[in-house]
Amino acid sequence: MVEIVRIPALSDNYIWLMHDPVSGETAVIDPAVAEPVLAEADVRGWRIGQIWNTHWHPDHTGGNAAIKAATGCTITGPAAEADRIPTLDRLVREGDTVRLGTVEAAVLEMPAHTAGHIAYHLAKEQLIFVGDILFAMGCGRLFEGNAEQMHANMQRLAQLAPDTQVYCAHEYTLGNARFAVAVDPDNQALRTRASAVEAARQRGEETVPTTIALERATNPFMRASSAQALAELRRAKDNFRG
């Protein structure tokens, strides 16, 4: 099994460091900044050989250049956003695969948050790096795409194995939980989860990764019956102050 390390950055970002113990290879997923990533890898004796980007936003690519300068790593990211990520070495699209030693990930195109957003699905390991598409009890804002695209993304992700671990890039869970309860107050599984999240955050604990099963049961965006319903939820969330 791969080893995955969570690295908090900025105000609420998570950078993921993934290590394949069989080959000894290490990748960084969505490095917002470089310094804590390089420090964590050094402490563990891991040599960073790759960066995987899910989309172009600076809080996901800001560490690319410095990590590449320090390690000589190869940077992979969405072909559709190549003009906005100048550090890319390899451009990938739907159907492509990326490898980290003995580990293989399928590239899934998931536009909506940005026009060329992708995810990396490691089916054998039952995990997925989703960037800013899916959050615990939430989804990304529709900056460059639309509700139809996001609804299709949610339905596609819902079809993954229930035990799939979902590695998103932000600690948004508490705010998402409060909104979810406001729009789905009769969902007992959601209310139970929201209470657990409140307690965890009070203790200073992180709440991701999540799982596909948890999101299917408690995420209003994944449970939305149509693109129109998701659009209404997204507008409501954008204005929610709970």
Rank of each mutant, 00 (worst) to 15 (best):
E198A: 10
Q159L: 08
Q165N: 07
A112R: 04
E94K: 07
V92T: 03
D186A: 09
F129L: 12
D132C: 13
P185F: 00
A106G: 06
T192A: 13
K68G: 04
K68A: 07
H121Y: 05
C73W: 09
E125V: 01
V197S: 02
A66H: 05
R93W: 03
P86C: 00
V197N: 00
H170I: 04
F135K: 12
A199N: 10
A65S: 15
K124Q: 15
A180M: 09
Q149R: 03
Q126N: 14
A136N: 15
G95K: 00
N64E: 07
G138C: 12
A147S: 06
C168D: 15
A180E: 07
R156Y: 09
G138I: 07
V98A: 12
H117Y: 05
Q188H: 06
P162A: 01
H117C: 05
I118L: 11
G138H: 12
R99E: 05
R193H: 15
M154K: 02
N176G: 06
T173P: 11
G140R: 11
L127C: 08
T61D: 14
L91C: 14
I67T: 09
A147N: 12
Q126V: 03
Q155S: 05
T74K: 11
Y120M: 01
L157R: 06
H113S: 05
A180Y: 09
V92R: 00
A106D: 14
L88M: 14
L127V: 00
N176S: 09
R156H: 04
V130G: 07
A66S: 13
V98N: 04
G101Y: 13
